[in-house]
Amino acid sequence: MSRVLAMLDESPVAARVLTTATTIAELIGASVDPLTVVDDDHAATSTNGARLVVGDPVDVLAGELSADDVEFGVLGSRALRDTPGPVGHVADALLARSDVPLVVVAPEGPALEGDDLLFLLPLDGVVASTSAILPVARQLVEAGQRTVTLHVFDPESAPPLATSPYDLDVVAQEFLARHTSECCDRVELRLGEPAVEILDVAEVEQADAIVVSWDGDLGPGHAEVIRHLLRNTTVPVVLRRAGASEASR
C-alpha cells in the first residue's frame, strides 16, 4: 500500500497537516504515515503518535519522500505574511527536492477535509507544467473529486480577436482538449496577473485546494506566482515540480 507522508512538527498547523494527509490518503487509497523529525536527541519526545526520527529534518524528510511507496507529502507552512519566505526553511528545501507532490497547509487556513472536494488546476499552457499536474489531477478525478482548470492570459498572450463569448468558448474548449480533457471538464479563462487571478478564481469557485506546478526554485526572482499563492491563500496548495519524473515515484 502506498503512503501519504504527514510531516508533523510542534506547530499549531500540525493537526491540520495530519487531517489533510488523512483526507488525501482516503481519496487515493493509501495509508497515512505521520512522521516527526527532530535534530536533537534531547528533544526526541514523540507527539501525535507520529513516528519519530532523529536527524537533519531536511535530509530525513527528503529521504522519506523519495521512497517508492510515497505518493504525497503533506507539510505545514510556518511562514506568516510578515516573514521573509513563503514557507519555512525546511519546507523550502523539500519543495525544491521532492519528486512527489507536496501539499502545503497554510498556517492560518483550513485542512483539506471531506470527500467532495474541488481542486483548482491553474495551467500556463506549457507542456512541462501540464505534464507535472496531470498525474495528480488524474488521481483526484479517479477518486471522484471535482477539478476546474484555470488559464490566465496576459495582455500580450491573449488571442487578439478572442474576446467575444463564443470565441472564448472555443479557446476554452481547445485548451481543455489539448491539456486536461481526460481529467477536467471545465476551464476558466482570465486575463491579468496570474497570482491574483488564481486567488480570485479559487475564492469564486470555493476551491478546497490549488494544484500547481513550478520549477522548484523559490529563490529571489523565481516562482513569483507560487510565492504569492503560498503567502496569500488559506487553502492547501499542492505543488509538483515541473520535470519531476513520474518514473521516479
Binding site: 488571442p159 487578439p160 480577436l161 478572442a162 463564443y166 470565441d167 468558448d169 472555443v170 479557446v171 474548449q173 481547445e174 482538449a177
Partner: peptide, 8 residues
C-alpha cells in the same frame, strides 16, 4: 490560427 479560435 492567428486568433487562437480556429479549433472552433
Amino acid at each position: 490560427d492567428l486568433t487562437g479560435t480556429t479549433a472552433g
